[in-house]
Amino acid sequence: MKDIRIAWLVPSVELGAYWQPVLREFTQVYPNTLFYTGQVWPGFDPEQPGCSAIEIVGETKFVETQKVETGYGRGFIVVSPSIIGRLLKFKPDIVFPQAFSLWTVFAVLLKPIFGWKLAIIYDGSSPNTDFRDSGFRTVARKWLAKFADAFVSNSEAGKQYLMEALGVPESKIMKRVYLVPDAKALQRRLENTEDIELQLKRPTFLYVGRITQRKGIKTLLGACAVLKERGIENFNLLIVGKGDQREELEAFIRENGFEEQVIWAGWVEYGKLGLYFQQADVFVFPTYEDVWGMVVPEAMIFGKPILCSKGAAAAELIEEGQNGYLFDPHNPEDLAEQMLRLIDDPSLIESMGARSREIIAQTTPETAARSFVEATEAIFAQQ
Rank of each mutant, 00 (worst) to 15 (best):
K61A: 12
P49E: 08
S52C: 05
E64R: 14
T65K: 15
P46K: 12
V57Q: 08
F44N: 05
P42G: 01
G75F: 03
V68W: 04
I56Q: 08
E47D: 09
F62I: 13
G50W: 02
Q66K: 15
E59T: 11
T70S: 09
Q66Y: 14
P42T: 03
V79G: 00
P49Q: 05
G43K: 12
C51E: 13
Y72I: 09
Q48K: 10
I56G: 08
G38A: 11
G50F: 02
G58Y: 04
T70M: 11
Y72L: 07
Y36N: 05
E69V: 13
I54V: 15
T60K: 10
Y36Q: 10
G58C: 11
I56C: 11
V78F: 04
Q39S: 12
V57P: 03
E47T: 04
Q66E: 15
L34F: 13
F62G: 11
T60A: 12
I77L: 15
C51L: 09
G73W: 02
T65R: 15
Q39N: 13
T60I: 08
Q66F: 09
I54F: 01
E47I: 05
F44Q: 07
P49Y: 00
Q48R: 10
K61G: 12
G58K: 07
G38K: 11
V57D: 07
V57S: 06
F62K: 09
R74Y: 05
V40F: 00
F76E: 07
F35D: 00
G73P: 06
R74C: 02
E69Q: 15
I56L: 10
Q39P: 01
E59N: 06
L34D: 08
P46A: 12
V78Y: 04
C51Q: 07
V57Y: 04
Y72E: 07
A53D: 02
G50C: 01
Y72C: 14
V57K: 10
P46W: 02
E69G: 11
T70K: 15
P42V: 03
I56S: 02
F44T: 05
G50T: 02
S52D: 09
E55C: 13
F35G: 00
K67V: 15
G75I: 15
F44G: 12
F62H: 13
V79Q: 11
F44C: 10
P46M: 04
E69N: 07
K67L: 14
G50Y: 00
T37V: 03
G43Y: 11
P42N: 03
E47Y: 06
G71I: 12
E69W: 04
E47V: 07
I56D: 07
F76V: 10
A53L: 01
V63E: 14
V40N: 02
G38Y: 08
E47A: 11
A53Q: 00
V40D: 02
V79E: 14
G50A: 00
G38D: 04
F35E: 01
Y36V: 08
L34I: 14
P46N: 12
E64L: 03
V57G: 05
F44R: 12
P46G: 13
G58D: 05
V79F: 00
E69P: 05
G38C: 07
G43T: 10
T65F: 14
D45E: 13
R74N: 10
F44Y: 07
F44W: 10
A53I: 01
